[in-house]
Simulated assay, not measured.
Amino acid sequence: MTDTSSATGGLRALARASVRTAIADRALQLFDEQGYDETTVDDIAAAMGISGRTFFRYFATKEDVVIGDLIIGGAALRDRVAALIVEQAPWHALHGAMREGAEEIDANPVRWRRTMRVINSTASLRARNIEKHLTSSALLTPVMSGHVAPDPRLGDLPARVVVSSAFACLDSALTSWTTADGSVSLVDTLDIAFAARLDQTAVR
């Protein structure tokens, strides 16, 4: 027998996710065209034909439209790394986990290039993005600590450096990919960034 209440709940969740995505896409377009600071919640609501109150049913703040749904970050990234590091070296596990996120971004490049343009052009969003990376780094460092030899005086410093270096590769790859002509995928750009970190001949 079909559980009607579960089916109805599932449809409602899908409908909510669809509306949330539509609001985010329209907001990102406005932010990209008009500027993030210059675009208000009322502007977004008017463009969508909804009220400001309805907007806040889907997003707690205007920032959450841009930052809240970033694919790469947090507990999910930690779990990806933890699964990969069982069989891979720490650096390759970080690369592999971030590469999975890059593949998801490559599936919708127009939306994510727009997202990164808005972030890179807005100081408050850049700060929020850095904050998210710091939070993710704090989650990843204990995972790395079990596989990277500690410093006898400074403990998990080597693990912190490995994690920070991986995020530096990610940020550099995203910046290059966002401003490039679109001929190179984010996955390939990320591969180049991680390889450059390992290639000692790249340092003169």
Rank of each mutant, 00 (worst) to 15 (best):
N129G: 02
V66M: 01
T201L: 13
V110D: 14
V148W: 01
S5L: 12
A24H: 07
A27K: 05
L28Q: 04
E100P: 01
A168Y: 11
D191G: 07
W91D: 07
R113V: 04
P152I: 02
I72W: 02
G49D: 08
E104S: 13
L14N: 05
L139A: 07
V143D: 02
A159Q: 03
V187I: 10
G182P: 09
V184M: 14
R20L: 14
H133E: 00
T40K: 10
H133R: 13
S51Y: 14
A123D: 14
A168F: 12
G146R: 12
D42T: 14
A195P: 11
G182V: 08
D32P: 05
A27F: 12
M98Q: 13
G96E: 00
I71P: 04
L198S: 15
R204S: 09
Y58A: 06
F194M: 11
L140Y: 03
T8P: 01
R197P: 02
V184E: 11
G73Q: 06
E87M: 14
T2C: 01
I67F: 01
E38P: 01
L170V: 03
T135E: 12
G9Q: 02
G68A: 11
A102K: 03
G52W: 03
R153E: 14
V81A: 09
N120F: 15
A22H: 11
R57M: 07
A195K: 06
M116A: 09
S6R: 07
A149M: 12
L170E: 01
I192F: 07
T189I: 03
A149F: 10
F59A: 04
G35R: 00
A193F: 07
G96K: 00
A159S: 15
R197D: 10
T189W: 03
L186T: 05
A195W: 02
R12A: 06
F167I: 08
A15N: 06
V86Y: 02
A76W: 02
V203Q: 13
R117A: 03
D106P: 12
L170K: 04
N129T: 05
V203A: 15
I130L: 09
S18K: 06
S172G: 15
D3Y: 04
R78S: 14
E87S: 15
D181C: 04
T115H: 06
G68L: 12
E87T: 15
V162Y: 02
D106F: 07
A149H: 15
E33F: 00
V143P: 09
P142G: 14
M144H: 04
E104M: 10
F55Y: 12
R12G: 10
D156H: 12
L198I: 04
